[in-house]
Nucleic acid binder design. Structure first.
Lengths: 106, 106, 106, 106
DNA sequence: ACTGAAGGCTGCCCGC
DNA sequence: GCGGGCAGCCTTCAGT
């Protein structure tokens, strides 16, 4: 099948097959977005509930963030180290190079 | 049971109950956030698919936004844009846009 | 392997010279980035000022975007939007927008 | 002087004073954006120059990032610690509470 | 030309 | 109701 046959920019039967496809995509997206929004509301609700149980939602949010971040942060540390190594590797092969690196970072 | 006994902000000698509650809330939230994230990825996927079918995702996104917008709200925005444009002495694009569309379908 | 030539790409056994060069480049870049950032803040400030004068910054931003856009490019976008909207069976907003503008000036 | 006299939403002499103000804002913004863009190009140019001198621009970019981040990262560490303290402070007043906290983070 | 990543910007949610 | 803080989106840029 030739690609041009159903390309929106080239097909000429507007409202035809491309229209059906488009509608399907739009519908799916809107459906998914609605579900996503709904989940967002559920989350809000849980926070609200937690608040009703006496928890400070602000702290709660921080806990969520922390639990999410900690592993990533460790990875980032490693990345940083690796980056340093790589950057230094460019210049640090000789004593003079080392000095140059040192001054570059001063 | 008195509420104060296990309220984080107030009670104190309560035992691990607050911890259990907290853990439950955290778990529920994390679960919901994960689902939400997953939906976000699904949406991206649909856009990608649409792109593969020859649709312009940028336009597609605009379509979604337009359909989502309250008509009155949208009219108001456009009015303001036209107003500002007029104040700047640049007559709005709309007539040209219309003409372009018209010619596209002629 | 000879890595002793510490010039990153070609190597010239020059000593700390690469370091000096590197430092110069880094400095220039950082300087430029700082200025750039500063300009970004200035821009924000102008928007803020405009807001203080009663302008709707959201609209203002759109105005800037519109003025920046190549007219042809812009017409094309609008055409596509209309096209997609038509394919979806929803006639575009443009006529309504126009009517709204008209009444605003009547 | 009443503020309403020159509010875009209420003033009615389009093309009048509000128009002048608007034009001034737009002009300033566009000017600043242009300068900003120009700086962006300068930066690119420096990278290009560095590349011509044999430096690996990828590494160079990393160096810039690192120099920018290191201080911030320290600050972030402190923020994290502080967050933990705060979160723990909510529950850690008693031995049992400590246990609860522990399980919450497990 | 497309994909993936980084930074900037926008909209949303909160507290004041 | 407003402004600040934060998450998500969009845009830009290097790499393939």
């Amino acid at each position: 099948m030739r690609k041009a046959d159903h390309q929106p920019g080239e097909g000429h039967n507007s409202g035809g097959f491309a229209g059906e496809q488009l509608h399907a995509f739009v519908t799916r997206i809107e459906q998914l977005e609605e579900e996503k929004k709904s989940l967002g509301e559920d989350i809000k609700e849980v926070y609200s509930e937690a608040k009703g149980s006496g928890f400070d939602t602000k702290i709660l949010r921080k806990i969520i963030v922390l639990r999410k971040m900690d592993p990533g942060e460790r990875a980032e540390q490693e990345t940083l180290i690796e980056l340093y190594m790589t950057a230094l590797g460019q210049l640090s092969d000789t004593p003079l190079g080392k000095a140059a690196v040192k001054s570059a970072f001063a």
